[in-house]
Design a protein around this nucleic acid. Structure first.
Length: 435
RNA sequence: GUGGAUGUAGCUCAGUUGGUUAGAGCGCCGGAUUGUGAUUCCGGAGGUCGCGGGUUCGAGACCCGUCUUCCACCCCA
């Protein structure tokens, strides 16, 4: 039978898992270094937990799960696969009022979106999310930005930059333009600026009911000078009190980020950054890499109202997510991934039936010494085993034939250089331990 | 969800206006001193031409449908 994967999903074969685990391990260790605690939640949630949080477009992309029994025949759904890691976190916080605030958690799990796949876009993909819950302090934003950049640094992507804006600034602009009741559509139009340009966005604003003067006013406010302070000063002068709160927050975030050791040219004020998700209330950010037109590799923002949607208890929160699929694509394109294709660092070959136990013992000894060791389990002569080792990409192999066996030696061969030497078993263990 | 491309050996692709047994490179298997891969030489295996219909004396080539992958839109990581 013809067999293939569901659209937008992938198997991760061992060679790919190596890089995925490298990225995940790296990100998790950086998150831990900043004091974030691990959390996992179920793959699926009750459907009402997810709907109404992401906006109309987002809701359409939620993977729904049919009810069991008669409900399924009527097409009814009561559960759905998680769309992101932020809403499940808000649900967890609402259900666990005893959590000591501020609560900092990280979560690296797959999420699902019923999107049409494209380059760097899948229906099942992993997010690395870290959030600070329970404080309105702009230090929380600063930590999110700092930890995300630190994670990308650790992955070998020091060129990552964060664009920063605040929803209150955007709302203030929308209100001034007379679009107070159309804030979300206003944001969606604005978000397209990068792609379709100012003229087309202006035309869409017109369709929303903004007159020419209002549109001109919007561009006037959004056009800011370079540099953090000039940009923020310009916005401050143009906005109402509510918008100025956003400006003040961004000033505090920038100050704290600088004190956390982040180079300030890695954070850019971009008043046109909108982001689609409905739940953001304050600062929003998006992470871009200079190389490759791959879209953003991460994003986030403050969502002070989300927990309250579950518990009625307002709990402020802010978070950021890294998308590892896109990060891996960039790492691959830049050749920044290790070329080793096996987990084991050495393959112990089996010279003959007579020598099998000698090889087995030596492999065991290597493993005890902490060397990642594979023992050849197939059939075949030495030549075949060498070809196998070469194809699999082991850095080293060990050969123990009758000659070596007699003298208590083993041959260690490096497959990259082709160099080999006969060593005593103890020296061989030491040599492989340090290779 | 909308629009556009794509699908031929394990992989990357050729395949002329429809015409005999469908090709190449790489890979794979075997051999070239039976204790040495990756290099070289020789030989070999391997294809329901995505799937299902249709047109035709004849379809890998044309038409319809369907699925896959990819690109753009939408939105996002």
């Amino acid at each position: 039978m013809a067999v293939y994967l569901p659209k937008g999903t992938r198997d991760f074969l061992p060679e790919q898992m190596r890089t995925r685990l490298f990225v995940l391990d790296t990100v998790r260790s950086v998150f831990s270094r900043f004091g974030f605690e691990p959390l996992e939640t179920p793959a699926f949630e009750r459907i009402e937990t997810l709907t109404g949080k992401y906006g109309d477009e987002g809701d359409k992309l939620i993977y729904k799960i049919l009810k069991r029994g008669a409900g399924a025949e009527r097409g009814e759904c009561d559960q759905a696969l998680r769309y992101d890691l932020t809403v499940p976190l808000a649900r967890v916080v609402a259900m666990n009022p005893d959590l000591r605030m501020p609560f900092k958690r990280y979560q690296t799990q797959p999420v699902w979106r019923a999107d049409r796949p494209q380059r760097g876009r899948f229906r099942e993909f992993w997010q690395c999310d870290c959030d600070v819950v329970g404080t309105k302090s702009p230090l929380a934003e600063a930590e999110c930005i700092a930890v995300a950049l630190a994670a990308l640094d650790a992955l070998g992507l020091p060129g990552a930059v964060i664009r920063l804006n605040d929803r209150r600034i955007l709302r203030s602009i929308a209100v001034a333009a007379g679009a107070a009741d159309k804030e979300i559509p206003f944001l969606i139009c604005l978000d397209k600026l990068d792609k379709i340009g100012r003229d087309k966005v202006s035309a869409e604003f017109g369709r929303l009911g903004l007159d020419d003067a209002a549109v001109a006013g919007v561009w006037d406010v959004l056009t800011v000078p370079d540099g953090h302070d000039p940009a923020l000063d310009s916005l401050e002068a143009a906005l109402d009190d509510a918008g100025r709160e956003g400006v003040d927050t961004l000033r505090a975030v920038l100050d704290a980020v600088g004190r956390m050791g982040v180079a300030l040219d890695r954070v850019q004020i971009d008043p046109t950054l909108a982001r689609g998700l409905d739940y953001y209330t304050g600062p929003v950010f998006e992470i871009s890499l200079p190389a490759g037109d791959i879209g953003s590799v991460g994003g986030g923002g403050r969502y002070d109202g989300l927990v309250g949607m579950f518990s009625g208890r307002d709990v402020p929160a802010v978070g950021i997510a890294l998308g590892i699929e896109r990060i891996i694509m960039v790492l691959e394109e830049q050749g920044k991934l290790s070329s080793q294709r096996t987990t084991a660092d050495v393959l112990v070959t089996v010279f003959s039936d007579e020598q099998r136990n000698t090889s087995l013992s030596f492999a065991t000894r290597l493993r005890s010494a902490g060397v990642k060791t594979d023992l050849y389990l197939g059939e075949g002569n030495l030549k075949k085993q060498l070809k196998y080792a070469n194809a699999r990409g082991y850095p080293n192999i060990v050969i123990i034939g009758p000659d070596e066996s007699e003298r208590g030696e083993v041959t260690v061969r490096n497959l990259d250089s082709g160099e080999q030497s006969k060593l005593s078993a103890g020296d061989a263990v030491r040599s492989l331990t340090h290779s």
